[in-house]
Design a protein around this nucleic acid. Sequence first.
DNA 1: TGACTTTGTGCCGCTACTAAACAAAACCAC
DNA 2: GTGGTTTTGTTTAGTAGCGGCACAAAGTCA
Lengths: 410, 410
Amino acid sequence: MNGKAATRGEAHLSARTRLERGRTALGPALELVHTGRAPTRAVLTAELGVTRATAGAVAAELEALGLIRIDAKPSAAAGSQGRPSHRLSVAETGPVALAAQVHADGFRAALVGLGGRIVATAPGCETIDADPAQVLGSVIEAGAQLLRETGRRCVGAGLAVPSAVAEPEGTALNPLHLAWPAGAQVREIFANCVRDAGIEGPAFTGNDVNLAALAEHRHGAGRGARDLLCVATGHRGVGGALVLDGRLHTGSSGLALEVGHLTVHPEGRPCHCGSRGCLDVETDPLAFLTAVGAEPGPEGLLQQARTLVAENYADPAVRTAAEALIDRLGLGLAGLVNILNPDRIILGGLHRALLEADPERLRAVVADRSLWGRSGGVPILACTLDHNSLVGAAELAWQPVLDDPLGALG
Amino acid sequence: MNGKAATRGEAHLSARTRLERGRTALGPALELVHTGRAPTRAVLTAELGVTRATAGAVAAELEALGLIRIDAKPSAAAGSQGRPSHRLSVAETGPVALAAQVHADGFRAALVGLGGRIVATAPGCETIDADPAQVLGSVIEAGAQLLRETGRRCVGAGLAVPSAVAEPEGTALNPLHLAWPAGAQVREIFANCVRDAGIEGPAFTGNDVNLAALAEHRHGAGRGARDLLCVATGHRGVGGALVLDGRLHTGSSGLALEVGHLTVHPEGRPCHCGSRGCLDVETDPLAFLTAVGAEPGPEGLLQQARTLVAENYADPAVRTAAEALIDRLGLGLAGLVNILNPDRIILGGLHRALLEADPERLRAVVADRSLWGRSGGVPILACTLDHNSLVGAAELAWQPVLDDPLGALG
DNA sequence: TGACTTTGTGCCGCTACTAAACAAAACCAC
DNA sequence: GTGGTTTTGTTTAGTAGCGGCACAAAGTCA
């Protein structure tokens, strides 16, 4: 060991300069197929910037690894000239990632293949225990059952939690809606559950909105965006996420994009953070239901608020409350646009319903409050994936394979 | 051309997947020497993660290109064992970048070598014309004169302007303090001036605070940081910049980190943006001087405010005004911390003076208003480089060489 | 003085790629 | 049909960059 070298730079820095070796084209090629950007070897050739020979060899190797499928029969695209190409697709019986999600109403487990395809889903549970180890043990047991039933190889496991996850410790800082203790070592607990269940591969844990953003970027409304901003509500509060150049930006300690305490209404209601009129307390489902004067129903705050916006927008009380929320959400998004200048924004939860109820109003507010009205033209879209947090959790587990297929599976 | 491939992904995406070829170790190695992280070939070996043979060959090639110098005599580090290593350093007579900066008081030109070392400086001008082409023509003429005097090879030119620069057009959106027209095509004008002066290499233009952040990251207080946030004042207004993984984050249209309109004082003074109590109007030199009740002096707002803070902090009026600014700056920084979660913050201009006057107060405010007080522990430092915008402008011109030394110089 | 430690270099071989020629499978014009 | 064109896929040979290894060099330590 060389002491000078070890203390000189932080680990992540030398990682950035460290060179890749081996089949460097393998990972990028798999990612292109995974995200649906390489339907044929010809496209793969162009996207990788390599020769046809290389693209062919790489594709063959990925097929040999059981990750992708190359159609035996060529299929000509309509109106195309030349020799028809063989389609590339994700292997249908290839490995899967075990994805898990916990939320206020319970948990879910699923197996997710390449391409973000959900292969199998466990029934799920509708209640949640106060002990993280018990909950995560149950959800992993459900996942292990799925693996036994399908008999598929597992590349790893990912967990989505409705809380900020601190780096590098992997503790849940505010699992307020889970009745879990703040600071619970979720990553470690989850990894232990995965190991104890005899499941292959590494285990990862992330915030649900972050993972939803990652999934939308790769397989949903965020495809092709370079700087993607996601904002979404759960039942309570607001979460944000940023995907830069295809990677989640979680900041130095995992706490980036905690957007809930942007001020969007200086005279607004007080927030537990000590300020007033935070995005959290002004635009979440509870804020909306309170403004409408609706009694809490049995279906949960988020579902109740969404349904009201979607189905009763003609009701003046609903519309007035919704427009107030849209204006404040727009103010918050404009503030984020001025700081992050994303090239796309995706909304989830109640915010998605608000966008769909009156897209023009939201876009106008954002454009009006963005500097020079210019970046106000940023596209604002609704998220498009079902279970995007679950798919995002699987992306975490797939990442090592995408980075180095041979190293992770060989 | 393949139409399908061309329309499938945006250009930057295929660039990310496109593979490097040739001597892939050359660029990273040069960057390590450039940023002072590879003082010997042994360290270079460790940082690159290659064999000694490769590191030796790469260093020899960089020396042959005239970019670095390998000491003929070995120099043993104190208290070290083993064979002493030959020191690596930046070539003293190697190529230079032409750096230019325009600001409210005039312009400056300099030649900057690798390592961020200013090799030569032109006297500079104290007045500024309303016509961008004339100003940039003059500054380039001063730079060309320096090149003639020193006879050194030029790798390109970089320009720092006190305005947001829109991407990809390269227009200055708010050169308010320059008396230039908003929307001036500064990048194109600058590139034309460079070409007309017969200067080799490409020309680049960027915002001065962004470039200052880049320079501080590579050669100053930001070294080793992964997520670096910079906030600085000029004479009027506040600018921000973010360096992620060694690269400037300018957002999709160059307008990221326009932090001047964060709300830091809801009942504060009105801002031209339509809101009240923006960081711009609450924490810039004019805000400070107004709060103190000082008459504008001849030395410029920034210098006057800085001097007051640095030399008259005992004066109750100065102290009261400074503390109010610190509190509001802290609020703004806390908001940015909640969104970006940087691992370091660097302050420039008046903000630097405020930090140095009362570092504890500023850190306490930021920690208090950051979520969980956790990321509030982010280090807040003063910038350390002289002429950091100028050095940053040179970094732009050096970047192609750092990315691919052979391709840029061979 | 000799053992040990660390740095630097020459040589060999591997491997992932390129380049270029060839083969295959569609279309079109006649 | 038949032959030409276009695009895709494969085969072959060649190359460049890096790893591995052995060895040499230049210091410290006992």
